[in-house]
Simulated assay, not measured.
Amino acid sequence: MRLDYFLAHSTGLSRKQVKVLIGRGEVQVEGEPRPKANTPLISGQGVWLRGEPVTLPGARYLMLHKPAGVVCSTDDPEHRTVLDLLPGELRRDVHPAGRLDRDTTGLVLLTSDGDWSHRLTSPNHACAKRYRVRCADPLSEQDLQSLRDGVLLRGEDKPTLPATAVRVSERELLLTITEGRYHQVKRMLAARGNKVIGLHREQIGEIALDAALAPGEYRQLTEEEIAGV
């Protein structure tokens, strides 16, 4: 990693600001008498800024209660994103591990750890996701059994994988799926002639949305939650 890139990610300063500091001699690198901005760093090599040691920040793992109207993106010219709900110091290098539609609420996990994110989102890992679904029309036992067995979505030639469907009320169910097809939950209910009018994600894998978080609020994941993925 180049020295200027390392310092920018460690301090939050711009590359331009970092280059000025290096040019002033305010940055020292172990074994380098006169480091330059493009000096390559070796793993474990010490770096100091104004006499203070500099290290890369650790990976960040957050859960967020996404409100409706917010998009799961790192940048959007028209809508608020999940990153807009975080303070500036937490946004750097963080991305949502998986997505929710703009009108869907509930649990979103954000991280700067690409490998951890991949374990959550890769189809090979089949991470379970539980949704609370409100429907326009009553749900029959046949509807629930069809969701459990797998339904054929419009425009596709393979049915969905078996799901867990538990009735909550006449028009509400808890649906757990292990895939991430486009608008999958809405399309599954549409395949049964019903319409989703409310969708809320409660859990991803072993991580459940903290009931203490109001829409728009977030917290750090615990070590147990991080290790459970």
Rank of each mutant, 00 (worst) to 15 (best):
V20C: 14
G25D: 12
V27D: 01
Q28N: 14
E30K: 04
E30I: 10
G31K: 08
P33V: 13
A37Q: 05
N38F: 11
P40C: 08
P40Q: 15
L41D: 09
G46I: 13
W48L: 10
R50K: 15
E52L: 08
P53F: 04
L56K: 00
R60E: 12
Y61M: 13
L62T: 03
M63E: 00
H65R: 11
H65G: 04
H79T: 14
T81V: 08
G88T: 06
G88L: 13
D93E: 06
V94D: 08
V94E: 00
V94N: 06
P96M: 13
A97P: 02
G98M: 09
G98V: 02
R99D: 03
R99A: 08
L100T: 04
D101K: 00
L107H: 13
L109S: 04
S112C: 02
G114Y: 10
D115Q: 13
D115R: 14
H118M: 08
H118N: 04
A126Y: 14
K129F: 01
K129S: 12
R130A: 15
R132S: 13
V133C: 03
V133T: 06
R134K: 14
P138M: 01
E141Y: 09
S146D: 15
V151H: 03
L153T: 03
R154D: 07
R154Q: 15
R154V: 09
T160M: 12
L161S: 14
A163H: 01
V166P: 10
V166R: 07
